[in-house]
Design a protein around this nucleic acid. Structure first.
Length: 575
DNA sequence: CTTCCTTTGAAGCGC
DNA sequence: GCGCTTCAAAGGAAG
């Protein structure tokens, strides 16, 4: 069976062995790819080799070396291969995406070339969502004024999509920016569409790409001044070139010295409002004494759920007509749990790739760098939260009803029914089934029952976002984890419980009710949750709010969401 | 204008 | 090693 294993090749990202080997998977994975057989595999191999070269022994030097003659030569060769491969792909590049309202480019097999995630989609025809590298500029307003198309070519074109400010390191997910109609004349399948889809990493390359992509006038663009130029950016540029530049045509080869900020790079505009006001002037030049403060803020790579959210949020917004992110996130959280492991693994894989790329782009970066960057959240709640956790035992659970009027199965939206996956072998637990339980019930539902055993069929879980057809197909026709215990071990995710939030609670502090977000069950953090020997659930994982998912089309009253909703007690089930 | 909300996952930190 | 904390995205709500 193909799917997660990246299709017939079986050498792609979904391979079990690869999933297991998360650490250092970069090299290993790339090495595995070298053993390709098909035409495209030549290209793949070239890309892989080049990437490997950059990431191996002299990776750091290579990362900081814009390019060498060897690189150019290799790139030219790969470009030829790529073009050839493109020609063989007949005209399916612009097939309409099944994701209505969320245009992707459907590029057969090219995902393996450009996508850091490889062929993750079961269809073996990966979607390449286009989104541009975005800099999350805190003080975006300051630079927004200067965001004109003219900046694109001469300055660092930094684009922040209004809805998707985050950008994949390699893939640009820009629902709006990319549609066949919008593609500029220079942006055609023949002209290397897929190349453009690759994350523009080389200085100047990005500057050109935006043009070809036909930036929307309304889209904010954030030209970055030289001030944003950082070693990290340099490393990113070079290493990303190593990762993907092989698929770029020569005309996309950098022509300027502009630094291309990774989407994760966020200039600390708040601290330096003028940084973008003078694109040509380096903040470091301007105020060298505060060099540290001007360090671009390199964001954390998105985790699997964040990636999922990014993809699914628009759908939820469209379906539920909700704009409040808190509500949407609740829905997404439930949908996330309702996803099949295959679907989730896709995002885990994407996240893993992001982390990998991120680590390559910013070798010295650490999440610690971002610690304290945000304003401190309220903390004084921990005591209250513990009290809440204790008292939650006996107050009748106020079920979350974000999208639905009720909290029990009988109120299940008929719309959800059609999506009910047939009771599959890997029956996911129906989070909804616990929605009406009191906390006492939940407590009685011992970890064994609530966490280890998929109790009820996950009937209403299927969400429009996760079409039942696809889901069931995965479940029945493909099971990369087939006999794996994870088939059932995944269930606990859906059954994690969350003590209800006190009705009178003010804004609960998330930091005050922190949960062990660290999956202690996973000995190797790099392992996919589906690969770890132990169940992916967390002993005291944050709970889910079961009712949300079942009725994605119904918008819960805000009060129901924000007040009756159980607090994310991360100390839930303290065992 | 800033912070919170809300979700999950990754990672850092302290013990 | 475990538990807690912070951050990643998002945009409306609230202070």
């Amino acid at each position: 069976m193909p799917q997660m294993n990246g299709g017939a090749d079986g050498d792609d990202l979904g391979a079990n062995d690869e999933l297991i080997a998360f650490k250092d998977e970069g090299e290993q994975e790339e090495k595995r790819n070298v053993s390709s057989e098909r035409d495209l595999d030549d290209v793949k191999s070239s890309l892989v080799n080049e990437s490997e070269t950059n990431s191996s022994s002299d990776s750091e030097q290579a990362d900081r070396r814009p390019k060498s003659s060897q690189d150019l030569e290799s790139r030219a060769r790969q470009s030829r291969l790529f073009q050839e491969a493109l020609r063989r792909q007949d005209g399916s590049l612009f097939q309409p995406s099944p994701y209505a309202g969320y245009p992707f480019f459907m590029i057969p097999d090219l995902g393996n070339l450009c996508s850091p995630y490889g062929a993750l989609t079961p269809s073996a025809r990966p979607y390449l969502p286009f989104q541009w590298p975005l800099l999350d500029v805190p003080g975006r307003a300051t630079i927004r004024d200067s965001a004109t198309p003219s900046h694109l070519s001469n300055n660092m074109p930094v684009v922040q999509h209004p809805h998707m400010p985050h950008l994949h390191p390699l893939l640009s997910y820009s629902p709006e920016a990319f549609s066949p109609q919008r593609a500029s004349p220079g942006f055609s399948p023949d002209a290397g569409l897929s190349r453009a889809a690759c994350y523009p990493v080389s200085p100047g390359g990005m500057a050109q790409i935006p043009h070809s992509f036909g930036w929307l006038p309304g889209q904010p663009m954030y030209p970055l001044g030289a001030g944003s130029f950082s070693p990290a950016a340099l490393a990113m540029n070079a290493s990303m070139s190593g990762l993907v530049s092989g698929s770029f045509s020569p005309r996309l080869v950098p022509t300027t010295q502009s630094s291309i900020p990774h989407p994760a790079i966020v200039p600390t505009v708040k601290q330096e409002p003028g940084i973008c006001s003078h694109p040509g002037k380096s903040a470091i030049e301007t105020q060298p004494e505060r060099e540290d403060e001007k360090k671009p803020h390199i964001k954390k790579p998105l985790n699997a759920f964040m990636l999922y959210m990014r993809d699914e949020r628009p759908k939820v917004v469209a379906q539920c007509q909700v704009k409040e992110s808190a509500t949407i996130n609740q829905i997404l959280g439930q949908r996330w749990h309702s996803l099949s492991k295959e679907e989730q693994s896709k995002y885990y894989e994407m996240a893993r790739k992001e982390r990998l790329i991120h680590s390559k782009l910013y070798p010295g970066w650490s999440a610690r760098d971002n610690y304290g960057k945000r304003k401190k959240r309220k903390r004084a709640k921990s005591e209250t939260q513990y009290e809440v956790a204790g008292s939650a035992e006996d107050f009748s659970l106020q079920p979350k009803r974000p999208c639905g009027p009720s909290d029990s199965e009988e109120t299940l939206s008929p719309m959800a029914q059609p999506h009910q996956p047939p009771s599959h072998t890997h029956s996911r637990t129906h989070p909804h089934s616990i929605s009406h339980l009191t906390h006492t019930h939940l407590s009685q539902a011992s970890p064994a029952s609530s966490l280890d055993s998929p109790a009820t069929p996950t009937t209403a879980l299927a969400s429009p976002a996760a079409p039942a057809s696809t889901h069931t197909e995965h479940v029945h026709s493909y099971s990369p984890y087939g006999a794996s215990p994870y088939a059932e071990q995944l269930q606990p995710l859906s059954l994690t419980t969350k003590p209800p939030r006190p009705l009178s609670s003010t804004r609960p502090s998330t930091s005050g009710t922190p949960g062990p977000s660290t999956p202690s069950s996973s000995s190797d953090p790099s392992l996919s949750p589906f690969q770890v020997p132990s169940p992916p659930h967390r002993a005291n994982s944050r709970s889910t709010t079961p009712t949300l998912l079942s009725q994605p089309f119904l918008i819960p009253p805000k009060s129901a969401l924000t007040q009756t909703q159980p607090l994310s007690l991360r100390r839930a089930n303290p065992l």
